[in-house]
Structure formats: structure tokens, C-alpha cells
Design a protein around this nucleic acid. Sequence first.
DNA 1: ACATTTGTCTAGTGAGTTGCTCAAGAAGTC
DNA 2: GACTTCTTGAGCAACTCACTAGACAAATGT
Lengths: 153, 153
Amino acid sequence: MKFSKKSEYGLRALLELCETYGGRVLQRHEIAARQNIPVEFLEQILLALKRAGLLASRRGIRGGYTLIKSPEEITLGQVIRILDGPLAPISCVSKTAYQKCSDCPYATKVSCPLQEAMGVVRDAIANILDHYTLSRFALSKQAEGSYAHHDRS
Amino acid sequence: MKFSKKSEYGLRALLELCETYGGRVLQRHEIAARQNIPVEFLEQILLALKRAGLLASRRGIRGGYTLIKSPEEITLGQVIRILDGPLAPISCVSKTAYQKCSDCPYATKVSCPLQEAMGVVRDAIANILDHYTLSRFALSKQAEGSYAHHDRS
DNA sequence: ACATTTGTCTAGTGAGTTGCTCAAGAAGTC
DNA sequence: GACTTCTTGAGCAACTCACTAGACAAATGT
């Protein structure tokens, strides 16, 4: 149940791009240096985000990347889906990439216990991540209190 | 962000063991056949659950596995942690397996945006899974309605 | 006693994923 | 047209996942 480095780097990169939103462009190496990310790997991530329509880019000496949508409009859920695929913990409960499980004996039945439980988890994750905007995300760069009640994990 | 087959199989196996709880033992091949799981793989899973104290076993011709704790006392969270490790989506927010992220520039700061966001996700997942008992899980074998509101995932 | 049937343990393995790296090319700028 | 940036694609070592295999230990039946 881990998110990949790709998502992590992507989100950290967007953090930088949020800061210069509306202003100047940022180059790969600037982002990479500030966020401590391998440049060549970061590049792939930025390209993916560009193809998904979040970023614009320019080549040449004054080139670089910019956010093309406002940080209010972008959610962590979007970004993670772009870089990591669907959020669902098992694919038979995914809304964006549903797949009937082949080996599960409940696949043909009316209800599946696993599907029931994992559906709840997926909804919870999606609910949080699809309402967590980049602007709120970038906010916690400066300050912040604590959150929610703490169980183990 | 997927759970492994190990967790899935483990939970499905426990579904069977719940049914005979307090009664007879179940053998690997019975569970495997009913739940459509490769026997030898299932074995590893059952052993792990045994070492964790959820199952007891007997060898020999009348041997097999039994649940040793009541389905009320076992949660999906426990099982998944045993088979898949910590629930936390990144290790710097794990309560059971915390690790300071080495490359993150916020690691030394007071707050990290990623940690903030992922902490919320972890709490949500843990909250659901640590309160979802095996008995409730086994319940949805017979019937069930739908749950929560549906966003994408 | 001894064969049979079960669980126990350790190691191996092929396929796929992750987290990068490299190199050649295309498009801007000066 | 030289230089700088993004763009594309391929490649690759290390690791994880989902199993598989085999030797061994204990319980039972005869």
C-alpha cells in the first residue's frame, strides 16, 4: 500500500511550480535542485504531467515549465492517478480502472466481502485526495497544526 | 496503491476459517479449493497468520488450521499489517514503521506538505481497517447494501 | 514399527515493476 | 548557427510479487 516515488516527486515538483504560478517558468534543474530529485527522472514526471494537461513547457534558453491550471483546480488525486494509476486498493473496486477479479469465488455472486470492505477504503481515499487541492497542499509549506485522530498504521 | 494478493488470499482464507470457528479444523487444500488459491502459496500465508497468533494448527491425518481468536477481535487492519506490512502510503507517516525520508527537503523543517496530506490518508485507512472486524467482514458473504458516496478512484 | 497424511521451513525462480540513466533529436533564443 | 533547453525512447540494475519445490517433522491408522 505505498505510493511510488514518482507520485512523491511529482507532488513535490508541483509545490515549486505553485510558487511561481502566474509568474516565471521553472527549469528542470531548478526544481530538481530545490526538491532534491534526480533530474532525468523528474523530467519524465514533468512530461507526464504536461501530457495530462497540468503543465505547459517552452524549449530553448528561456524555457522551462509552468502550471497551466490554477492550484485551486488541481487535486492530489488527479496528480497521483496520472503518475501512479488508480487509487483503488484492489482493481475490482476501481471506478477508473475496474477489472473483474478472475479467481475470486464471489465474482459471480451478488456481493463480495472484499469488494465491500475495499470499496469503503477506496471511497475514503478518493474522498480525501480528490478534495485536497494543490493550493491547500502548498499551504502547509509555511505552518500547520495537527490533524484527525491518531490510530496506528 | 494496491494491496497484495497475499492480503487478499489471507482475508479470503480467514473467511472460511470464520465459518468453522469453534468447530472443526480446515486443511490447506480445503481452503485453497473453496477460495481458489494456490495451495503452496496459501500455506505461507497461513503460517504467517499462525506466527502472528491468529491461527492454531495440528499436523497429521486429522490436522488443519483453526481460528484461535474470535472473529470479533480480529480486524482487517491487523491481518493486512501481518501480510503486507504497514498501511501508511509513505513511510514517513507510518506509526508502526516510521522512517525519516532522506531526500525530502522538508525532513528537517517543522512541517512537510506531503506528510500532512498522507497523514490524513493514513488515518482514514487505519480508521476503517482497524475497526472493520472479521465478523463484520464475513457478514457480507450473505447479503449487503451499498456504502458511502461514490467518487472516482 | 511403519507407512501415510498432514503441517513446517527454507530456498529458489520467472515475470514484472521501480527508480533511475543515457543518448540522440527537436525547438526555441541570442 | 551555436547554445540551451525540452522531448523521446531505449536501456538497465535492483527489487518485489506470486508462486513452486523439496526436505523435514509430527500426528494418526494399522
